[in-house]
Amino acid sequence: MIAAALRLAAPALVAATVAAAPWSAHHPARPRALRVCADPNNMPFSDSAGHGFENRIASLVARDLHEPVAYTWWAQRRGFVRNTLGAQRCDVVIGIIAGDEQLSTTAPYYRSTYVFVTRRSSNLHFASMNDPRLRRVRIGIHVIGDDYNSLPPGVALAGRGIVRNVVGYSIYGNYAKPSPPATLITAVAQGKVDVAIAWGPLAGYYAARSRVPLDVSPVGDAMAGHGIPFSYAIAMGVRKGDTTLLRTLQHELDTRRAAIRHILAEYHVPLVTDDGAQARADTDHPAGDTAPHTASGGTRP
């Protein structure tokens, strides 16, 4: 519920899923909880019931630190970082673009890609944005509103002059409903569009749960024209300057790589390597370097 998510004056809602641990002598400057900023209605990433893979990763880290997880719920929209991390309501964002300038990020712990989602029965299979059939089929994509922002599939399609057969679904959707962005994947299952081009973790999770069999395949072109990257490295983020917590989290990511990979595999998160090749979820080396990521890396063409 967004009403709970955006409770401004109220203290952070504490999820009592992890028992309170004794004060950790290693982190005297921090409250005795891993204070996580998260969206309460954004499966498969996170929800207020703790069902998302980011919830699972947060619990894993907190357990190692002998701390409970304390969530501040906030819809992950414009102002999310400013109103959560920036307002000192919480201290860590579990999933964010590596190098996002608004915060300090760890080394990326996974890299996913935009994917094509099709009905298995349609016998359509796409591997490239340059596939000429994209000019004829009905394509569904996520779109944002008017604030100078776009998602990579729309930019790449428009750059190819493919617009008349493209249907936009609001990335915001109706927040009163569960996981609003999932509408795009449902649209493929329902035959409203022939193919969706969607972000991998969302597509992988909902395609796996669809009663209509769906196929998921990565957008193969690493930079599908117009300098638009289609794969993105994801890291944890903290407030700029919070180097103690950043180091703690980096240590966790370095030592818990296998367990995190296992969680991602459970949620059918499509993984790729730095060069865009498909990675196997449970064994591959995580994308990117291992030192904390500096600003403006990687994702800016």
Partner: peptide, 18 residues
């Protein structure tokens, strides 16, 4: 000036901001 592209994240999805 309207320049380049800056990747960020919205509803768990990477996007490009001018």
């Amino acid at each position: 000036d309207y320049k380049g592209l800056k990747a960020s994240y919205i509803a768990g999805t990477p996007y490009l901001g001018a």
